[in-house]
Structures are given as structure tokens and as C-alpha cells.
Nucleic acid binder design. Structure first.
Length: 265
DNA sequence: GGGATTGTTTAAAT
DNA sequence: GATTTAAACAATCC
């Protein structure tokens, strides 16, 4: 479930913990969890970590390839972890430190990615929802789409970093129905929505991410966002605005969608 | 044992 | 051709 705040939480931690370290060995426990030749990174030194949309990019000195990680639903990256049932890959560093990649459902992956391939991907994703998205660009994106606004928010090719949790929450804070066609929203509504997006994402980061089920930070700690959910995973529970209605759950684009039918029109 | 779960990709449809 | 929708996929839990 890691979305922008969760991945960014881990990136900030690992950037400090791993920068300067040299890979001694990569232990692959589940073959499918590491794509490409892991041997490529042995002896290579980490420069720093980047986040592209929901992916983590580890850059190394003197190479044209990076190590890219996608946590998908249940992935975890634990610094100095220990081997457990769902450990898929272990990075061993020259100084004896370790990084464990655990992934219960094995949807996530680590891979070797050539700079050209990575740059092509970077070109294809939209502006980062937290750091790059301007109101002008947001209006332009919204006005040119007939899709329900929630699906547009979650489309990484249009806007990068927002997943199901933060899409639902941002729409609640801006009082917009998730099914509303994007181009029908007024400039005023879009402005409010962008403010809400920045609000829920920066709060998500402040609280260390959402750990409803699997998410843990690099130290194995849970985030606190789930204690602040307004609508996500709260169907049948009273609207936080105490308007007298309860949160409803519908399916939109095949995904669970939560909203207050009274406060979000 | 079927349905729900996620983000991404690919194919099909408009 | 571009935009949009649907299905498929990875694997596991309840």
C-alpha cells in the first residue's frame, strides 16, 4: 500500500543510513523478487536515494544503472532486519550492515535499471503530487479529462504519487465526490482539491505513513496515518463532519472508494 | 473456494 | 492517435 508519503518516509531514512555504503553481497531468497543481474552492484558504492512516483531509486557511484525498488502492496525495507518468513532479498554491506526486503505477497520487486530505461520512465510519469504539481498544471490536467476525478488522481502518468488512501482522503477534505468527472470541477474546486492533496500528503509524511496492515519504515516502526483516516476504510462509520450520514463504500475503477454522500457532492 | 486486496501493464474499446 | 476502460497479473488471507 505504500504511496508517496510511505515511500518518502523510507527514502529519507535510507538516504541517511545507506549513502556511502558499499554492497558486499546480495542474497536473493525469492528469485522472482529481484529482476536482473544482482551481481552488477557488488563492490559498488551508494551515492544517494531518489523517489520517482512510488518507486525508490538507489544511485551508485561509477555506473549507468540504478537499483530500483517498488514495494507494491506488502513490501518492506528494513535496516538491520532479521530473516523472516517473507524475506525475499537481503543486501549485505561491506561494513556488516544489512537491508532486508520483505514482501508477503511478492507483488513488489527490486531490479537493475539502466539510466536510459529509468529516464524514459521518469519522462512518462506526471509531476510529483507533493513537490512538482502546480495549480496551473493541475487545472490543465483536470479540464482535459472526462474520467472520474479519483481515477485521474491515481493515474501515475498524469500525477505521480497518489494511491487509493490519499485520493479518498483528499477528496473528502475538499468536499468533492470521487465519481465527479474531472473536467466538470470548477477552478475553485480544483484549487481546494490541490490544497487538500498537499495537506494529506504532507500530514502523511509528518505521521510517518499509513500502516493499516504491512507498512513499516526502515526501522520497522509503524506510521500513524491510519489513526487519522476520515473516510478510508471507514464505511458504515459516521462522517467525521458529524453531518448525520455514514461513510459509504463504492467500487470505482475496480477499487474500493470511500466518501460521505452528504458532504461530497 | 471465491472474493477482495494493490499498483502497473497490456490489450481492447471508444 | 489519443484517451479511456477492462482485464490480467503477482500471491495471500479470510
Amino acid at each position: 500500500m505504500p504511496e508517496l508519503p510511505e515511500v518518502e518516509t523510507i527514502r529519507l531514512q535510507l538516504n541517511i543510513l545507506l549513502s556511502g555504503k558499499t554492497i558486499r553481497n546480495i542474497e536473493i531468497i525469492s528469485q522472482n523478487s529481484f529482476i536482473g543481474d544482482s551481481g552488477f552492484f557488488i563492490g559498488k558504492k551508494i551515492i544517494s536515494l531518489r523517489r520517482i512516483a512510488k518507486m525508490l531509486v538507489i544511485d551508485f557511484k561509477d555506473t549507468d544503472s540504478s537499483m530500483v525498488v517498488h514495494l507494491k502492496m506488502t513490501g518492506q525495507l528494513l535496516f538491520r532486519g532479521k530473516k523472516e518468513k517473507h524475506t525475499r532479498v537481503i543486501l549485505h554491506f561491506a561494513d556488516g550492515d544489512t537491508l532486508y526486503f520483505n514482501d508477503q505477497r511478492r507483488f513488489g520487486w527490486m531490479r537493475v535499471m539502466d539510466k536510459n530505461v529509468l529516464n524514459r520512465y521518469i519522462q512518462s510519469v506526471g509531476p510529483d503530487a507533493l513537490n512538482e504539481l502546480t495549480i496551473d498544471h493541475f487545472v490543465q490536467i483536470a479540464k482535459s479529462s472526462k474520467r472520474p476525478i479519483k481515477l485521474l488522481l491515481m493515474d501515475q502518468m498524469k500525477i505521480a504519487g497518489i494511491g487509493n488512501i490519499y485520493a479518498n482522503e483528499a477528496l473528502f477534505y475538499s468536499g468533492i465526490n470521487p465519481s465527479m468527472q474531472a473536467f466538470r470541477l470548477s477552478n475553485e474546486q480544483l484549487k481546494k482539491l490541490l490544497t487538500s492533496i498537499h495537506f494529506v500528503l504532507s500530514n502523511g509524511l509528518k505521521w510517518g505513513g499509513a500502516s493499516r496492515t504491512h507498512f513499516r519504515d526502515a526501522y520497522g516502526k509503524k506510521g500513524l496515518v491510519q489513526e487519522h483516516f476520515s473516510v478510508y476504510d471507514r464505511d458504515g462509520i459516521a462522517c467525521p463532519n458529524t453531518c448525520g450520514f455514514t461513510v459509504e463504500r463504492i467500487i470505482l475503477g475496480g477499487r474500493g472508494t470511500f466518501f460521505c454522500p452528504n458532504c461530497q457532492l
